[in-house]
Every structure is written in structure tokens, then in C-alpha cells.
């Protein structure tokens, strides 16, 4: 870990009391932030400072702080999860910023993800899409041996790539259309690529797309911004597969 000089920063944070209330930016000065600390640790310092000043700390979602739970969700300096590639907010480190920088921190902004408070948004729509069809219909028990159906390595690997989605919502947040296609396509792809999931692939694609539309997410216009900002690098080729699965399913109806 390289020893670098500590940073003094101006942090412009979105404050919003509740979903219905109007929000505004609040500017805070922070001193002596270690470049080796993570972005969320910087936010911790900010909150500590606010508490000591008798103010309310900034509410933001976070949990595992190792880039896998998908809970953290900040829009930093115009990028979902900040300016570094292939990281979540919690893995973004302060060495990506320079002394004297002004950092703008906003919540995910999309009609599908209403703000709950400050930087915290409601992503329950994702759970609803999953409940509509993001599964293989098997009950516990009574399944064949794990090696009963060999799966080509290529398919298994591709399914794994799609399955690495952490459901953070950066794709919706960054999409100019507020579209959830990357999220939906990752799940549809993962399961359609595996023989176990192939069986109900058509039903799944239709059910998940119908729920996604119903919840008011936008349409994909193939800008690829979702892929560029996805912390896990989920590819938009999954969206092509979703389109294929969906269209084939519809044409067979």
C-alpha cells in the first residue's frame, strides 16, 4: 500500500428527507482523508463529523463492503459506483481522487427506484421481477445427481458470467431510459444456458419481461451504458439473448 498524502475534499451530497419531499445538495468540507480508505469509509468520516456537529448523518445503503452484496449504490461524479471501472461503490478507493477535489454524490435516479431517504433508494422492483420468473421450478429434494447432465464448460462459464450480476441497480441508474434489461437478461441468460433452466426458458422470459414492463422500467435502446457501468461487467450480449428468447417464445404462442 503506497503512502500518499491525505486528501482534503469538498463533498456535495444529495439530502432528501423522504420519497415525497424535495431534495437538495449539501456541501461539506472534509479534511485528512487517507487515499487508502474506501469511498464508504470517507462517507463514515463525513457522518461522524455530522454527528459530532449535532446534525443528522447521511443515509446510504451498504452492507458487505467487499463488492458482492449489491447494496451500495451511489452515483459519484456522474458515474454509477464512481469513476473506477468494474468496482462497486464500496470498492472504490479514495486514491482515485485528488487533493482539493469536489465530489458530487447522488442517489440512483430512476422512476423504478424511488428515493427513500438521502442516498437510499427502493429497489424492491428487482425482487418482484425475480418472483415473476427468475428461478427454475424445482422443489427441495428429488433431484438427479449433480453430474447426471454434463454441461459444456463453455455454457457453464457463460452462465457464470451472467450469474455474476449482484442486483445493485447500476444499470437502471445509468440507463438514459431507466431500463432494467441488463438485470433481467442476466438472469434469463444464466438459466437459459443451462439444460436445467432451458425447460421453462420461454415462460421465464415472457414472465420476467411482462413484470419489468408492468413496473414501469424503460426500453433498451442499446446504448451499452449499463455494461460500461456494471461493476461486474455483465455483457449486453445477454440482452440479445433475452430478446431472442422472448421473441421465440412469443412467436410460438
Amino acid at each position: 500500500m503506497s503512502e500518499v498524502q491525505n486528501l482534503n475534499l469538498t463533498v456535495k451530497v444529495w439530502r432528501q428527507k423522504g420519497p415525497k419531499e424535495a431534495g437538495h445538495f449539501e456541501t461539506n468540507e472534509l479534511k485528512g482523508i487517507s487515499p487508502n480508505s474506501s469511498f464508504l469509509e470517507m462517507m463514515d468520516v463525513l457522518n461522524e463529523q455530522l454527528i459530532n456537529e449535532g446534525k443528522e448523518p447521511v443515509a446510504f445503503d451498504h452492507d458487505c463492503r467487499e463488492g458482492i452484496c449489491g447494496m451500495c449504490s451511489l452515483y459519484i461524479n456522474g458515474h454509477a459506483h464512481g469513476p473506477d471501472d468494474h468496482v462497486t461503490t464500496c470498492q472504490l478507493h479514495m486514491r482515485k481522487f485528488k487533493d482539493g477535489d469536489t465530489i458530487t454524490v447522488e442517489p440512483w435516479r430512476s422512476a423504478g427506484f424511488p428515493v427513500i431517504k438521502d442516498l437510499m433508494v427502493d429497489r424492491s422492483a428487482y425482487d418482484k421481477i425475480m418472483a415473476a420468473g427468475g428461478f427454475i421450478s424445482v422443489n427441495t429434494g428429488g433431484v438427479p445427481d449433480g453430474n447426471a447432465i454434463p454441461i459444456p464448460k463453455k455454457d457453464a462459464d457463460e452462465a457464470m458470467d451472467a450469474a455474476s450480476c449482484i442486483g445493485c441497480g447500476a444499470c437502471v441508474a445509468t440507463c438514459k431510459n431507466g431500463s432494467a434489461m441488463l438485470f433481467v437478461s442476466a438472469k434469463v441468460s444464466q438459466l437459459a444456458l443451462l439444460p436445467q433452466g432451458r425447460i421453462e426458458a420461454a415462460r421465464r422470459a415472457k414472465a420476467m419481461v411482462a413484470k419489468m414492463d408492468e413496473l414501469g422500467f424503460g426500453n433498451c435502446t442499446n446504448t451499452g451504458a449499463c455494461e460500461a457501468e456494471c461493476p461486474k461487467g455483465v455483457s449486453i450480449s445477454n440482452i440479445a439473448r433475452l430478446n431472442r428468447e422472448f421473441l421465440c417464445a412469443k412467436f410460438q404462442d
Binding site: 456522474g78 458530487t104 447522488e106 445509468t174 431507466g178 431500463s179 422500467f217 424503460g218 435502446t221 460500461a228
Partner: peptide, 22 residues
């Protein structure tokens, strides 16, 4: 029209286009 509705009324204060996006 649908997409702009899905985007919502709150616009980002700053938004940067990733290099790979045409």
C-alpha cells in the same frame, strides 16, 4: 415518451458518458 417517464423527473446533477458508449 415511455423512456423519459421511466427515467423519472429527477435529473442527475452530473452525468458522464462512459467512453464505450456511442
Amino acid at each position: 415518451v415511455q423512456n423519459s417517464k421511466a427515467r423519472g423527473n429527477n435529473k442527475y446533477d452530473s452525468q458522464v458518458r462512459p467512453a464505450s458508449v456511442e
